[in-house]
Amino acid sequence: MSSPLDDPDGNWWDRKVNRRETIWLGLSAGWAVSLFGWMLGWTEFGDQNNIGQNYEVSPERYQEKVSAYKDAAGTLAVDGEDYLVPDGEDVYVGAFQWGFDGLPVVVRPGETYKVHLGTYDVQHGFSARNESNLSQQISLQMIPGYEWVLEMSWDDPGTYQVVCNEFCGNGHRSMHGTFLVADHDAVETGADAGEGGDGQSEASGPYGGWLTSDETGGAAGNFESVVDETGSSSVTVEVGADGNGGPFAYAPPAVTVDQGTTVTFDWISTGHNVVVEDAPDGSDWSGVESLEGDGYTHEHTFDEPGVYKYYCDPHLRNGMKGVVEVV
């Protein structure tokens, strides 16, 4: 008999192979061929193929494409949430640290869309599922420098939830977006959509439009009116409150305080900073440059009167902006 520890004597190559082993070899080879044939065949008769056009596009250029798409898109309010309505068959999703630009979006059931996937910074994962049937789920990789366009169409109406499933840094767990598959009345899109009643007028809000315009970053959607805290001895601004499609808001975004008031910036979620965009001459406020998390606080006593504009670096494009006005 033949031990695996001894060198095999004689002409071991020509020894007969057991009949059943031979049959098994044939079955294995046949199964391998079947697996290959099925994959190939599915590209013809199957409805799910991770095949689409690829383009080499820099992250900066891709972000511009997504911006142009958002400008041309209309808006539909559903249950208090604003959804983008694509102008045409293209849908753009731009993943970034840490969110999905372009979401939420509403698409019509049964129609075919060209879904563009890309990222503005590092690798992210586009992991999408039907909220009412979690096993209807797929994942696709997003890699900076590449734009992937896949045709998609949805038959099942409902809300689809998107998370990131490629580790992309500290805010990875907070990356979330949705898209809605629903029929709806026609909504105006295209070059006219930007001037529709969605308040995105240029430089027409207070503070030179810092909060209301999307000239620098996105518009601060959570801004309604300036909160008057004159007379208060201590004022708190929450950092990373819910707003702008995620935990992307300062609350309140605009506040007036007396000279000499100490304002406490209180982080209630992770991955934010406070970058000073503009401050009066003589101010010594430098904000908080590092990204901090839940529980972090920063205090500053505002002595110099004037308007202090600030924003959160990773979430500027979501509209995470704020103002402290010292009177």
Partner: peptide, 21 residues
């Protein structure tokens, strides 16, 4: 992973900031 689409490399799928989902 396959039946629920639960992501890997993720510490908190029961508590996603900014959403009820």
């Amino acid at each position: 992973g396959v039946l629920f689409g639960v992501p890997r490399r993720h510490p908190s799928v029961m508590d996603i900031p900014g959403t009820e989902f």
